[in-house]
């Protein structure tokens, strides 16, 4: 419906005409709305980082020890994958704006594949950790039994699974959004002239990889000195 929209004109007392901005076809408004939404994501993760920082101050040694046991090789690979996917997503938007719809679609497919790779590696990582008894709800992460880890490590892993879990959830949503975007492009609803949806999904993907850029060093790298590359 956005395409047939004709903006209204309002006339002031001198007879001068002013174009009225309607809610339809409001490219800038759509962008502003999505930026604001991204702001809430930052605050949400910001609060979790706050909790994390606080507990790192209380249990610095436990945090480093727990971090040392994470798999830096897989985590690092995932970081690279996510950074490359941010590049492909950005390229797809550039191609869309330049009028190359086919190239844009190709780049979105590349992003989806990279996102799936990220999730697969994440799954391998979590499975390995589960097999070592380190997972939410398992004995090692409950206090008050013979297998339980120290408080600081329980908190570390609790936050690790919560935050990477919520981040992974965002990746899944992102894949869904990209599939939807491809459908909209095929239906001609998203085109080089009207690509606000593409723009916003690219923005979403940027925030998802940006959050990972903070998650990765905070969980994986603080124990790198003592842990080597491998882990669980």
């Amino acid at each position: 419906m956005a395409h047939e929209y004709i903006p209204e004109i309002s006339t002031d007392r001198d007879g001068t005409e002013h174009v009225v901005q309607g809610w339809q076809d409001d490219f800038y408004g759509g962008k502003l709305g999505f930026w604001l939404f991204m702001f809430t994501e930052v605050l949400m993760f910001g609060a979790m980082f706050l909790v994390l920082t606080y507990y790192k101050m209380l249990h610095p040694a436990d945090f480093v020890a727990a971090s040392a046991s994470l798999n830096r090789f897989l985590g690092g690979t995932n970081t690279v994958i996510l950074l490359v996917s941010a590049l492909t997503m950005g390229l797809s938007l550039l191609k869309m704006r330049a009028g190359d719809v086919k190239g844009a679609k190709l780049m979105i497919w590349a992003t989806i594949i990279l996102a799936l790779m990220f999730l697969s590696i994440k799954a391998v990582e979590w499975t390995a950790e589960y097999n070592h008894g380190v997972f939410l709800g398992l004995d090692a992460l409950q206090s008050g039994n013979p297998h339980s880890k120290p408080f600081g490590e329980i908190l570390f892993f609790g936050m690790y699974f919560t935050m990477t879990g919520i981040h992974g959830f965002h990746i899944i949503i992102g894949i869904g959004l990209m599939v939807w975007l491809l459908k909209r492009i095929n239906a001609g609803k998203v085109s080089p002239e009207h690509h606000i949806l593409h723009w916003n999904i690219a923005l979403y993907w940027d925030i998802v990889h940006l959050i990972w850029v903070f998650v990765f060093p905070y969980f994986y790298m603080i124990g790198a000195a003592s842990g080597g590359t491998g882990g669980h």
Binding site: Y55, G137, L141, G158
Partner: peptide, 8 residues
């Protein structure tokens, strides 16, 4: 915390 007893 309630489900998994993390202890936050």
């Amino acid at each position: 915390e309630k489900y998994f007893g993390i202890g936050i």
